[in-house]
């Protein structure tokens, strides 16, 4: 099996797919870095000459005042206390929350690329994994060697998993390395709020707590990896079903973009939450953004995605091992 995976990686590598993806990320990250830099500059200008420490100090005093006022719900009080701890940490460790370091940039980068950019890049790799063999005719040689069909498909899927891991790692390394030039490389220990959930219209802050940024980033990259693998698996399935790589890409592209659009407009179409493409923004659950449809949670989305991926794999393997190859 190692040798088969070796073959698949060799082909991927020689088709320069991964190389192109690295180039795309390496070209986009400086662009986003510049955008972020401009934003930081504008906020700073708005604040005028006020030192950020003074500003933060002021905020802390505000929060303390609000906490001391008697009539306040318990969970809100708890939330404010956590906020207070966070602000105090920033002040004590001399961290300007308005001036991000490279880890913060990384975090913002994955949060914004999880539902479209990274899945698209994964799609580029997965789309022709099988269909190119069919359209190029090489499948006839692959399938007439003394190797069972399921082993051949499995080797391709393992190559896909490795590629997904590579793409996610590369985007982490590149976004950290490049943005650090501008923002500096520090800020791993910065505490961030997490544990939000929604109930009806309300943001539930009961479970909100602080975790260091490195842990937060690790969680988010784990989720990105999972999302990419699911999108990769579904693309892989289409690649088995269709001979034309262009058709595979077209369908997947349409699905992903439809997902991005639907996420903004399906709040009253409840069953849309079972579509894989409206469940891709897993990182929103961590940062506490509102969900597109009521009743969605991290667990729910993970299960929906998992079910889609398993179904995709079952279809891929059944069709590939049985189908007539012309």
């Amino acid at each position: 099996m190692n040798k088969l995976v070796h073959n698949e990686l060799l082909k991927l590598f020689r088709k320069r797919r991964l190389f192109v993806i690295i180039l795309i990320i390496a070209a986009l990250v400086p662009l986003f870095t510049y955008a972020q830099y401009q934003e930081v500059k504008t906020t700073r200008e708005k604040l005028g000459n006020v030192d950020w420490r003074t500003q933060l100090q002021q905020e802390i005093v505000d929060t303390q005042n609000r906490l001391s006022s008697s009539r306040m719900q318990d969970d809100w009080r708890k939330y404010l206390k956590i906020r207070l701890a966070q602000q105090q940490y920033y002040l004590d460790h001399n961290i300007n929350p308005q001036a991000p370091g490279a880890p913060t940039f990384m975090r913002v980068f994955v949060e914004n690329s999880i539902d479209l950019l990274l899945p698209l890049l994964v799609m580029v790799v997965a789309a022709d994994l099988v269909s190119s063999e069919a359209s190029g005719g090489t499948i006839k040689l692959l399938l007439t060697r003394p190797v069972k069909r399921w082993r051949i498909l499995l080797s391709k899927y393992l190559a896909l998993i490795l590629s997904v891991s590579f793409i996610v790692t590369a985007s982490a390394v590149l976004s950290y390395g490049i943005s650090g030039v501008v923002f500096g490389y520090g800020g791993w220990g910065m505490p961030l709020l997490t544990g939000f959930s929604t109930s009806g219209e309300e943001l539930v802050t009961n479970n909100v707590h602080l975790i260091p940024q490195w842990q937060y980033i690790l969680m988010e990259f784990g989720l990105v990896w999972f999302v990419c693998l699911v999108v990769g698996t579904l693309t892989f399935m289409l690649s088995v079903l269709l001979r034309s790589t262009a058709a595979v890409m077209g369908i997947m592209l349409a699905a992903l973009i439809a997902g991005a659009i639907l996420s903004n407009m399906v709040s009253s179409w409840e069953s849309a939450k079972y579509l894989f493409m409206v469940n891709l923004s897993l990182t929103d659950y961590i940062s506490g953004m509102a969900t597109p449809i009521e009743g969605m949670s991290l667990g729910f989305s993970l299960i929906v995605l998992l079910v889609w991926a398993i179904a995709g794999l079952v279809v891929s393997f059944t069709v590939f091992t049985k189908k007539d190859v012309y």
Partner: peptide
């Protein structure tokens, strides 16, 4: 089978 198709980029 039919044409001798191999990987053109290798």
């Amino acid at each position: 089978v039919e044409n001798p198709e191999l990987y053109p980029y290798l």
